[in-house]
Structure formats: structure tokens, C-alpha cells
């Protein structure tokens, strides 16, 4: 059986076929996956926040989109992926609780999604699929033998992008 590698909150992992990388229970967080379809190498990053401008020096860089994505890119390239072939798929960024006067922090899901796309673009990586927004949690996994990105929910079934 192929490896199932768990990626925690504010964490990232890279690997190669036939492993699967999985991250459970994303709410406003985003699961950013990168994949090189030719070498069958990829990675999965679970970010919590859009940017690290308010971060302390000691903070874990994988928590933020702007510092986490470059780390992920470097590590998949170090494993043998080619930057020009890398494609990204992202999922998550929900708003779990509805409040009439939602503050910025409540809308962090939307901001996370925007930030991820912007940073991927800045790094020259195409986002070929996404499943973001809504008010429900997602468990995401990327199968590194095919690059398919599976999204599981509780009430809304399962889909692959």
C-alpha cells in the first residue's frame, strides 16, 4: 500500500509517487498542492494566514501563505521537480461561522485564497484548479502518482479536482 503522509496545521510535506499527502479538517485554512506531472513529485502545504507582516521572528513560516509557499516550492524542486512544470491546486478558505458584523479575522478564508493565488502567480506557478470558499470544512489529499487532488466534506460529498 502506498504511503499516506499527514500534513498538520501550519505544516508542509513533499514526496513522490506513489505516496499520498493528506491534510485533515481545513476550515479557513488553505491546502496548497504543487505537482510536477512528469517527475510525479509534489507537495502539500497547510497555511492558516495570508501574510506574515505581523509575525514574530520566531514564528513558523509554514503558517503563512507568503512565507510558506516559497518554502514548498524550494523543497519540491530540491526533490527533483522542475519549476516550469509545477502546477498548483488549492482548496479551503471557508468561513465557518456566520456573523452579521464579520471582522477581518472572520473573513480570513477569502483573504487566504486571494493571497495564495497572488503568491503562486508571483512565483510563476499556474493554479489549474481550486475549490475555495463556502462555510464547510474540507479534508484534502493529493495522490502523487496522478496529481489528482481529492476534497472530502461532511455534507457535500467528495470531489476530485
Amino acid at each position: 500500500m502506498a504511503d499516506l503522509i499527514k500534513v498538520g496545521m501550519a505544516d508542509y510535506k513533499v514526496g513522490r509517487s506513489p505516496s499520498t499527502l493528506i491534510s485533515y479538517g481545513l476550515g479557513s485554512c488553505i491546502g496548497v498542492s504543487l505537482y510536477d506531472p512528469q517527475r510525479k513529485i509534489g507537495g502539500l502545504l497547510h497555511i492558516m494566514l495570508p501574510d506574515s507582516t505581523q509575525a514574530r521572528a520566531s514564528d513558523n513560516p509554514a503558517k503563512f501563505a507568503d512565507t510558506g509557499i516559497p518554502l514548498l516550492i524550494n523543497d519540491v524542486i530540491a526533490l527533483g521537480a522542475s519549476r516550469s512544470r509545477l502546477v498548483a491546486k488549492i482548496a479551503g478558505g471557508a468561513q465557518m461561522f456566520a456573523f452579521a458584523n464579520a471582522t477581518d479575522i472572520m473573513r480570513v478564508g477569502t483573504r487566504n485564497a486571494e493571497s495564495c493565488k497572488q503568491i503562486l502567480k508571483r512565483n510563476g506557478i499556474r493554479v489549474i484548479a481550486e475549490d475555495t470558499g463556502g462555510n464547510y470544512g474540507r479534508t484534502v489529499s493529493i495522490d502523487l502518482s496522478t496529481g489528482s487532488y481529492k476534497i472530502k466534506t461532511i455534507d457535500r460529498g467528495e470531489k476530485t479536482i
Binding site: 476550515g27 485554512c29 494566514l49
Partner: peptide, 12 residues
Amino acid sequence: DMAGAILNVVLV
């Protein structure tokens, strides 16, 4: 929903 997703709100 999933515990992780719900806890996100406070953890973020």
C-alpha cells in the same frame, strides 16, 4: 463540521 475546521476560527 470537522473539528479541525471549526477550531480554525479560534486558532487563526
